[in-house]
């Protein structure tokens, strides 16, 4: 049996800068295994150990996703092997294109009981790849999951929905995306990194995956979004009571004190 973890190797958007014409520059942003995907890998490791299953990472991206530094970072977190679909065409790919590439790998792998995903990617955060993937595979989609149990061809989960904690049982295989806190992660140690270097990595191009990827439209304009201009008034806080009074006066003058 295989458990797949879909993960993204992504730049930290906090370090992204935007030029006045709306072009984004991620060159200063360090890429890592996206925060919440690390949660999915850790969770998958524990589940795979309990089931005696193999834990396979599947990632989709541009050339950076297939670099040894990227695959090692993911493997060091506990995957047994990774398959990367890496192609310049997939750099910044949208949810549907990404899910199509993951689905192609999952189908080829076979014997997959569960695909785990993180809550959202740190750079885009669309939260749609797992849902499109489930649609492509024809498997149930269960998001916001805190706990997964695999037994006798079924997947049972506890998930956080707005009404409370919902328990669901579905026929396996299924696609499950976890909450950001489903399990605590730990930074990989030196031993994990050394072991990662010896684990199998398969790299496929878009052509190898046999995929005719969805068209993602044509960019016709970009702009910097400034949001409302902010006043940037620094209130002297050396006397807290006076600072509070000054803020209250300013808010009252703006007519926003209900």
């Amino acid at each position: 049996m295989r458990i797949v973890v879909a993960y993204k190797y992504a730049p930290d958007p906090q370090e992204a800068t935007v030029a006045s014409d709306g072009t984004l520059d991620f060159s200063r942003a360090k890429a890592i295994v996206s925060d919440y995907d690390a949660v999915a890998i850790e969770y998958g490791r524990q589940l795979a150990d309990a089931q005696g299953a193999a834990l396979v990472g599947v990632s989709v991206g541009g050339e950076a996703a297939a670099k040894p530094v990227a695959t090692k970072a993911a493997l060091a977190r506990g995957l047994d092997e990774v398959v990367v679909v890496s192609d310049p065409e997939l750099d910044g790919a949208g949810s549907t294109r990404t899910a199509q590439a993951i689905a192609a790998v999952v189908k080829e792998l076979g014997d997959v009981e569960l695909v785990l995903a993180g809550d959202s990617s740190m750079d885009v955060g669309a939260r749609m790849v797992p849902s499109v993937l489930a649609g492509l595979l024809g498997w149930p989609m269960l998001s916001d999951v805190e706990k997964v149990t695999l037994a006798d061809g079924s997947v049972s989960v506890e998930r956080l929905v707005s009404e409370g904690v919902q328990s669901i049982t579905a026929a396996a295989p299924a696609v499950v995306s976890l909450t950001s806190e489903a399990v605590k992660t730990k930074a990989p140690g030196m031993k994990d990194l050394l072991a990662a270097g010896k684990k199998p990595v398969a790299v496929k191009s878009l052509a190898d995956s046999g995929l005719v990827a969805v068209s993602e439209g044509t960019v016709t304009a970009r702009a910097k979004l400034d949001g409302p201009a902010r006043k940037g008034v620094v209130i002297d806080t050396s006397d807290p009571a006076a600072a509070a009074a000054e803020l209250v006066n300013a808010l009252r003058a703006a007519g926003v004190l209900g």
Partner: peptide, 30 residues
């Protein structure tokens, strides 16, 4: 086989503008 668009800012026939990178920029695609 449709592309997914999140955080739309303006939607017209055949064209969508959306916020990207957490809302620091926007991108229009046809």
């Amino acid at each position: 086989s449709a592309p997914v668009v999140t955080m739309p800012v303006e939607i017209a026939a055949g064209q969508v503008t959306r916020a990207i990178a957490g809302g620091i920029a926007s991108e229009t695609r046809s």
